[in-house]
Amino acid sequence: MTTEGLLATCWTTAGDAEPGSGDERSPLGLRERAEAAGAAGFTGFGLLYPDLVEAERTYGLAGIRSLFEDNGLRHVELEFITDWWNGVSRDTAADAVRRHLLTAAEALGARHIKVGPDVEDRPWELDVWAEEFAALAAQADEAGARLGVEFLPWSNLKTVHDGLRLVEAAGHPAGGLIIDVWHTERAGTAPAELAKVPGSRIVGVELDDADAVVLGTLFEDTVRRRRLCGEGSFDLPGIITALRTAGWSGPWGVEILSDTHRALPVREATQKAYRTAAALL
């Protein structure tokens, strides 16, 4: 059991839904998911934008906040903003998502909003990206939240070092990194390197595990074959120690993505995700 708190990221409670599918919405209602997370012991909850839209139709933002509070979920994570590096264009769908998530973050008292890199790995300019990231971080700060960029080993921000280079260049104190240990392990980043990350630049951490060998593409492997914490090849005790050395004290996100996990009833899936992560902390 940990006193630092565990946050169930969006996919951990989403049931039969996955990234990259035509419709990423969870087939489960938010109440069922929040109750499962709270009952398992989680004190935080992640919500994907399409699921936020559905839940807002049912409960309104005030109702969502009450639902989280009723289930002891005090740490709220919202995702995912993409295409932020092209600046604000008032008539684009991407900007509508951006503005909606900022509004929701303020209403829900969210601790942070996640943003993504360019998954097509196209050429990019640090100065341009840093300026746009700083502007978005300032907007998140105004909403009472932080902004975390999640680096991905198949994107233009492949490693923790790439992500840190961006957030340091941006310079805004509300901006930082989401460190998913799946991505650091697949990028070959040693725990000792994680210990050197400035604690002020860590916005969130996500725990999970995986087999030593990648099957298929990195994206296929991360979506279909993640393992519960402690059931794969990662040196999670070493990684956790390194992140604590860097200054991270939680809440620790738990992001389990796999065909096996999606097939389980949400209460069972959520309980397993909590129990295996808490055992390491």
Rank of each mutant, 00 (worst) to 15 (best):
G247E: 04
P191A: 01
R267E: 15
G247L: 04
V160P: 06
D51Q: 05
G144D: 12
T222F: 02
A14L: 00
A246T: 14
G46M: 00
A170P: 11
L102T: 06
R122H: 09
R90L: 14
R99A: 13
G204M: 13
A246K: 15
G188C: 06
A17S: 08
E220C: 04
A130W: 03
H75M: 09
E150C: 09
I256T: 11
E220Q: 13
W154C: 02
T82G: 10
A36W: 10
P27V: 00
G188T: 05
V97M: 10
A93I: 05
S200A: 12
G247F: 08
G46Y: 00
G41E: 07
E35K: 09
K196N: 10
R186L: 04
E132Q: 05
D211C: 01
R146S: 04
L157F: 01
F68R: 06
V115G: 08
H161F: 10
G116F: 04
L281F: 15
Q139W: 13
G171E: 05
D208I: 01
A8P: 11
K158P: 07
T159H: 07
P27T: 00
G116T: 05
T9Q: 10
K158C: 08
E142N: 14
A55M: 06
R225D: 10
A212L: 13
T260A: 13
P198A: 02
I202R: 14
P27D: 01
M1C: 12
R224W: 04
L264T: 05
L30F: 04
L126Y: 06
V88A: 13
A246R: 15
D118F: 03
R226I: 01
T2Y: 05
R227L: 08
A17C: 04
V167A: 06
G20M: 04
T189C: 08
Y49K: 12
G38A: 05
P27F: 00
I240E: 06
R201Y: 09
R186P: 12
I240V: 12
